[in-house]
């Protein structure tokens, strides 16, 4: 409120043009979304969202509950296909390939764009089987030794190996919540995806488990492109390089994380990050 005149121009600009504030493009382009609209039956869940995601960057999607950030995330590996009555229009390209092409097979797409869910959802099988499942169904391994190598490597990268190496044949559901979530991350990276989508991966975890996952995300950034939905603004500030703010199905503002949190250009973003609502 220091500069009422500036705030007023920003708000009126947004009202008049109904456009996203900030730079939607990204250096080192990997995923490009243009004019995405999502409908659940009659409900218009996402309005005309355009956003780019770059290589080796962590982009955080923030916003109040029901603003469509999870829906947008699920568009990126066509997880929304499984929801009855969900329609997606617009164009999303991954490395130049339109992923909503009717000829495109979703199986390789989902191997390429992995996903970690809000609630840890390990298969009710052993820890080893959980991680081995992906490589096995995609035929990535020729021998048992190779499979064991992949399982160990994935668990190591997920920071879980030392905790579970003696219990590989125990059920994955017997682990603690944080361990289960890291097991799910290990399962996702076992198929060597290029992009990892994370839908509030820490919402069910305590602060220590959360810290471990955040550290993990930071390490994973060197190999993968990561899009993370989070309700915790501190988390977004800690792990991401870019941040996108969603409000009522619209992408309000996107920009460098530091800029969004210190100098938001849109009134709604400012209200949200200063805790005026949300």
């Amino acid at each position: 409120m220091k500069n009422p005149e500036k705030t007023e121009t920003k708000a009126s600009f947004a009202r008049e043009h109904d456009m996203t504030v900030g730079e939607i493009g990204a250096a080192n382009l990997r995923i490009q979304c243009r004019g995405i609209n999502v409908y659940y039956g009659e409900k218009h869940a996402i309005h005309n969202v355009s956003l780019d995601i770059g290589r080796n960057e962590v982009i955080a999607l923030i916003g109040p509950s029901g603003c469509g950030k999870s829906t947008f995330l699920r568009c990126l590996n066509r997880m929304n296909d499984t929801i009855v009555g969900c329609r997606v229009s617009g164009e999303i390209t991954l490395d130049g390939q339109n992923i909503y092409d009717s000829n495109l097979d979703v199986v390789p797409l989902r191997a390429q764009v992995g996903m970690v869910f809000q609630k840890p959802n390990p298969f009710p099988k052993s820890i080893f089987e959980n991680v081995a499942y992906g490589p096995r169904i995609h035929g990535l391994v020729a021998s048992k030794a190779e499979l064991e190598e992949i399982v160990e490597g994935s668990l190591r990268r997920a920071g879980l190996w030392d905790e579970v190496k003696d219990y590989l044949l125990h059920p994955g559901t017997g682990l603690s919540g944080g361990q289960q979530q890291r097991l799910c991350i290990a399962r996702t990276i076992a198929v060597n995806p290029e992009v990892i989508l994370m839908d509030e991966p820490c919402s069910a975890l305590d602060p220590i488990a959360t810290a471990k996952i955040e550290q993990l995300i930071d390490e994973l950034r060197n190999h993968y492109t990561i899009a993370i939905v989070t309700h915790s603004m501190q988390q977004a500030a800690r792990v991401s390089q870019r941040t996108a703010y969603f409000h009522l199905g619209k992408l309000i503002e996107v920009g460098d994380t530091a800029q969004i949190f210190t100098n938001p250009k849109h009134q709604l973003t400012e209200d949200y990050i200063t805790g005026r609502f949300g």
């Binding site: 590996n77 499984t82 797409l109 989902r110 992995g114 996903m115 869910f117 298969f123 992906g134």
Partner: peptide, 15 residues
């Protein structure tokens, strides 16, 4: 059967 199991399998690229 909880939908999370289906999502988990689809998420790693199972048909």
């Amino acid at each position: 059967v909880p939908p999370s199991i289906r999502e988990a399998a689809l998420g790693v690229g199972a048909s």
